[in-house]
């Protein structure tokens, strides 16, 4: 029962993030937030199953994911600052130079 709840929760989180990605056309920041949500759902699973299997290694994995996610968001934010300086916006629909 508990397991079902956790898995359903994480799955709903992922799906919400996907939907957010797809319906959101403009704002890069919201896209980044969605990515963070995907990371979170993975982490929830890791932590829960480390508990479930009485094994602490899953938590170590979750820690590493947090670290990598932090690094990723740092770089993404830096790029966004650059983009903002260049175009004065963070609208992803402005980045159309490679359109075929």
């Amino acid at each position: 029962m508990l397991r079902s709840i956790i898995i359903l929760t994480s799955m709903m989180l992922v799906l919400t993030a996907f939907v957010g990605m797809i319906i959101n056309r403009r704002n890069l920041i919201v896209m980044l937030l969605c990515v963070e949500m995907i990371f979170l759902s993975a982490n929830i699973n890791f932590v829960y199953f480390s508990r479930f299997h009485q094994h602490v290694h899953g938590q170590v994995m979750a820690l590493m994911i947090i670290v990598v996610a932090a690094a990723e968001s740092a770089v993404a934010l830096a790029l966004m600052v650059l983009m903002y300086r260049q175009y004065h916006t963070v609208d992803s629909s402005k980045l159309v130079n490679i359109r075929g």
Partner: peptide
């Protein structure tokens, strides 16, 4: 023909990926 796929909209790319 194929270059029309390249819309350069991130969310469309993401939709294809999903």
């Amino acid at each position: 023909k194929f270059s029309r796929v390249q819309t350069s909209y991130l969310n469309r790319y993401f939709a294809i990926m999903s």
